[in-house]
Amino acid sequence: MTDLSAFPITEKWPARHPDRIQLYSLPTPNGVKAAIMLEETGLPYEAHRVDFANNDQLSPAFLSLNPNNKIPAILDPEGPGGKPLALFESGAILLYLAEKSGRFLPEDPAARYGVIQWLMFQMGGVGPMFGQLGFFHKFAGKDYEDKRPRDRYVAESRRLLGVLEGQLAKHAWIAGEDYGIADIATFPWVNNLLGFYDAGELVGIKDFPRVTEALERFRARPAVQRGLTIPS
C-alpha cells in the first residue's frame, strides 16, 4: 500500500485509498475543473472537501500542499518516476492530468500549444474577470454606489465572451474541433456566470449564442454533470 504519511495534508484529510489521486477541492469554477477532468479521464481518485466556511484553506495542513491557499490541489501517489507528486493551480493540474492520461491534449506540438494558449486565455482572462464581475454584481460589491467598477468588469466580460463567440464560430470547441482542457477550464466559468452569479442579462448573453450552445453541449456530458458536484 502507498504510504502518504510524509504529506501533512493527509493528517487532516486521511486517505482511505492512498493508491488513488487525492483531490482537495470544492465545487467552485476552479475546483470543478479538476473534478471534471478526473471524471473524464477515468483516473482513480478520492475527493476531499476543503470547507471555506471553516477556513480549511488556511489550515497548516492545506498550506503544506498549496501555500497560496486556493483550491484545487492534488496529491498523486504515482507521479513521475513512480514518486508522489503534490500539485496546485487548476491549469497546471489540467495539463498534468492530460499528460498522465494521454487525453484532451494533442500530441502534435503545434496543436498542443494551440490548446495551451486557450487554457492560458481562461487562466489570465475569463477566470479573473468573471470572478470580479461576480463580486460587484452578487456579493459585497453590489452595494457600492459607484457602479463604474462593476461596469468595467461587465465590459471586459463581454469582450471575452466575444472572443469565445468568434472562436466557436470557426470551431466546434474552443481550441479546435476536439473537446479538450481549454473547454474544461473555461465552461465552468461561463456556467457560473450565468447560474450562480445570475449575470446573463447583465452581460447580454443573448449576443453570444455560440457560447451558450457550446455550454449546453459541455453540460450534457455525463462526466461534467458528475464533476460539477464534486466534492459533495
Rank of each mutant, 00 (worst) to 15 (best):
P72Y: 12
K83T: 09
L38E: 10
L95H: 02
M123T: 15
F104Q: 01
G79C: 05
A53M: 11
N30L: 06
Q122F: 08
A53S: 15
P14Q: 07
Q57S: 09
L105R: 06
I21S: 01
F88I: 05
A86T: 10
N66H: 06
L63V: 11
A34N: 07
D51E: 12
M120Y: 08
G102R: 08
A86V: 03
E39P: 02
Q22H: 08
N66Y: 05
G82T: 12
H48T: 10
A98Q: 11
P67H: 05
P27C: 03
A15F: 02
W118L: 08
V126C: 04
N54Y: 03
M120S: 12
V126L: 03
A98G: 10
G114S: 13
Y144G: 07
N68D: 07
Y45F: 15
E78W: 04
G91K: 06
K70V: 15
D76L: 04
G125R: 05
M37F: 02
L63S: 07
L94I: 08
L43S: 06
S64P: 02
P67Y: 01
L65S: 05
D76R: 04
S101P: 07
A73N: 02
D143C: 00
P18H: 07
Y24E: 07
K147T: 13
E145C: 01
D51G: 07
D146H: 12
P77N: 10
V115I: 08
L85Y: 06
A73S: 15
P29Y: 10
E46Q: 01
A15Y: 00
K70E: 06
T28P: 08
S25W: 03
H48L: 13
Y96W: 07
P14K: 06
S64Q: 03
T41W: 03
A35S: 14
I21Y: 01
H137A: 15
L105A: 09
L65N: 05
D143P: 01
L43M: 12
K138Q: 12
P128N: 09
G114C: 12
R16K: 15
G79W: 05
G125C: 08
L95I: 15
G91F: 09
P128R: 10
Q122R: 05
P77K: 10
E46T: 08
D146T: 00
K138L: 11
S90I: 02
E89L: 14
A140N: 01
I116E: 08
M129I: 15
G81M: 05
L38W: 04
A73K: 01
D56K: 04
K83C: 05
L95Q: 13
S25L: 09
N68R: 14
G82L: 11
Q117W: 01
A92P: 01
H17I: 02
A140R: 08
R16C: 11
P44L: 10
N68Q: 12
G114K: 13
V50T: 07
F104T: 09
Q57A: 11
Q122I: 02
K138M: 06
E46C: 04
M120Q: 13
I71K: 04
R103E: 14
S59G: 09
K147L: 04
N69Q: 14
F139Q: 12
P27A: 08
F104Y: 15
P128K: 07
D19S: 11
R148I: 10
H17D: 14
F121L: 14
V50H: 05
G125D: 00
M123R: 00
E145V: 14
